[in-house]
């Protein structure tokens, strides 16, 4: 192949020479290789230095941001659940305390009532006893008077019947004997 030697002469002639198939024209390889090397090297450098780091940075930022947000959301949910549990516990405790307090109050009131009633009953019993004692005393006194009246009546009867007053001692003894029967 003598083509490389006639390269200069060929270049303007290519246009006219229709049979020459451009992709297989060795004369153009030098320029194409040179420019491909330059342009692809520049592209590779810009890609690896600027574009790819920037794009991967953007995607990484987004990924970490989303992961962070999800983590915060999970934490918040856990905290909310914790708070809910604490609330339930506090509620149960309060309910228990309220029940205990109510029971205590009820017991206290019942005890007080029982005490008051006992006191009242005791007073009533005392009053009753006093009253009974008073009645007994009255009765005894009245009975004492009965003896004197009976003695008087017996003396008067004996005086009317016999015309003479009996001895006071004999009458009271006789009345006492009669009343003892």
């Amino acid at each position: 192949m003598a083509q490389p030697i006639t390269a200069h002469a060929e270049v303007p002639g290519i246009e006219g020479e229709g049979a020459n198939f451009p992709p297989f024209d060795v004369n153009t390889f030098g320029s194409q290789l040179l420019w491909l090397a330059i342009t692809f090297a520049v592209l590779y450098l810009l890609m690896s230095r600027v574009i790819v780091p920037r794009l991967s940075g953007i995607l990484e930022d987004r990924r970490s941001r989303i992961a962070g947000d999800l983590r915060i959301a999970a934490e918040s949910k856990a905290r909310a659940e914790e708070a809910g549990e604490a609330y339930e516990k506090a509620l149960a405790e309060a309910r228990g305390r309220a029940q205990a307090l109510a029971q205590e109050t009820r017991d206290k009131l019942a005890a007080e009532t029982a005490e008051k009633r006992a006191a009242l009953e005791a007073e009533l019993a005392r009053n009753l006893a006093d009253a009974e004692a008073r009645i007994t005393a009255g009765k005894d006194k009245a009975m004492g008077n009965v003896e004197a009246i009976a003695s008087d009546a017996a003396t008067a009867i004996v005086e009317r019947l016999t015309g003479q007053a009996p001895a006071g001692d004999a009458v009271s003894t006789a009345v006492g004997k009669a009343m003892a029967q």
């Binding site: 004369n27 153009t28 030098g30 320029s31 194409q32 040179l34």
Partner: peptide, 9 residues
């Protein structure tokens, strides 16, 4: 080899 800035370049 002819070197040039071509339409391909």
């Amino acid at each position: 080899q002819e070197i040039a800035f071509t339409n391909s370049a």
